[in-house]
Design a protein around this nucleic acid. Structure first.
Lengths: 243, 243
DNA sequence: CGTGGCCTTGAACCTAGTCAAGTCTAGTGG
DNA sequence: CCACTAGACTTGACTAGGTTCAAGGCCACG
């Protein structure tokens, strides 16, 4: 199955040697600039599954770039209702929903053993003063995050359970692909419960939808292992016509 | 009714004389800095109700600050489903979900006759290089927008129709208050249809919920006119217990 | 093995959507 | 000034998709 060449993000201590730098930093950075960036990055924090990178309410002093593993961010309402706002894969920046010095508005937990790089807001801000490329990169990341949330709002308010699940599977598929992993065969790092809280469904519904997809011959499901049986490009159309 | 002193945003050509500057720009700016900011702002564009400030797909070269009136931003899915992503009131920045040069991901329309100030991305970026206050201000605005979207995701996936409507009314109430208008008596600038597309409900449901609120004596509804009959602070608790 | 958490499956229920009238309002033109 | 119309809004009856409740299966881990 996993037929492609996975990127190997670990054990490389510096940005200029890290295979994920193309994902987390702007490509336009010169070598000299990248060295400057590298100097404000703290490496090495490792999280075990279930451990928190930060918690809702903690003062936000840093953002993080995920090197390996997987994370989820969740916002909890006053009444204990939980909304998973994002799943994070290697190469993605985490913590952009916080402002420097304010409280993190979400809790971010490790779904697997994970390693992160830490970047202090203050040092990043200083550097961005004379590095326009860097400055614009982060604005771009933030605007993308706004866009993604808006797409999520559309999903939550208008799509059926099947369309939601299909959207998630295709999103993960595409993100694995850009990371050098298989787009058609992967393991979900999150539980059914996490998926439900992300898609705005009940756990039971998530389970049922996956079963229906499998019965329709679209995917094979074995616990957390997902295998596409048709091309991801055809997936959504098939879901639309069969459900 | 409208018992407070409305801010008067119009007819003041420069930022240092604009009563909304406290809302749209950081308070820490010095007079000298504010003059610099003023120089990159283009004033004067006026929109009539229904007119577009920009449309989904247009190249994004500017962001806008609303001076008067009201706007809505909507994202349309491939299948024509419409999600209202935000209502904008005077003093708010519009267009942050776009990255410089990319396409706007939403269409922003005037709900009323509206006036906006335009700020080019490029010039704002230049200025922010040597104005840390300004730079951080915009990062803060964007992170707030991410936070708001996440709250909206929670609303759309977990809250009942009554809770959604209550959240919107209280949100508008608070925003009118900070703008010097009454928090307990105001006119909705958007249609029931807009509200429905914002809250992820059917128009009929919006109508019914408002009727129920009125029957319960929480508010008086007369077309677009809303009057709170109880303190906004007690509103949500009352909604929770009665529905 | 046994236990607890995660997942699946079935059946009943319920909230909000859809469909269908009917009302109200604002704007138009005679 | 009033009649007419189109669109916005409201109300009622019915429907459906997804939740909730309940039970049982499947691992993984001690």
């Amino acid at each position: 199955m996993a037929s492609s060449i996975p990127l190997r993000p670990v054990a490389e201590p510096h940005c200029n040697e890290c295979s994920l730098v193309a994902l987390c930093m702007p490509r336009e950075l010169t070598d000299a600039e990248l060295i400057k960036v590298d100097q404000i990055v703290t490496r090495g924090r490792t999280l075990h599954a279930g451990e928190a990178l930060f918690r809702q309410g903690d003062p936000a002093l840093s953002i993080y770039s995920l090197r390996s593993g997987a994370l989820k961010s969740t916002a909890v309402s006053d009444k204990g209702q939980e909304q998973v706002t994002a799943f994070h894969l290697p190469g993605e920046m985490v913590g952009l929903s916080a402002s420097e010095g304010d409280a993190y508005p979400v809790t971010t937990l490790a779904l697997d053993t994970s390693a992160v790089c830490e970047v202090s807001f203050a040092r990043l801000d200083n550097l961005s003063a004379y590095m326009p490329t860097l400055r614009r990169h982060f604005l771009r990341l933030m605007s993308r995050e706004i866009r993604d949330s808006q797409q999520m709002m559309l999903l939550l308010s208008k799509k059926t359970a099947e369309q939601r699940m299909a959207t998630l599977l295709l999103d993960l598929s595409a993100r694995y692909r850009t990371r050098g992993y298989s787009a058609t065969s992967f393991r979900l790092s999150m539980s059914r419960h996490d998926i439900a809280d992300y898609l705005g469904l009940a756990v039971e519904t998530v389970s049922r939808v996956l079963t229906r997809f499998a019965q329709a011959g679209l995917i094979a499901v074995d616990g957390k292992q997902i295998d596409f049986l048709i091309a991801p490009g055809d997936f959504f159309a098939r879901v639309e016509e069969e459900f």
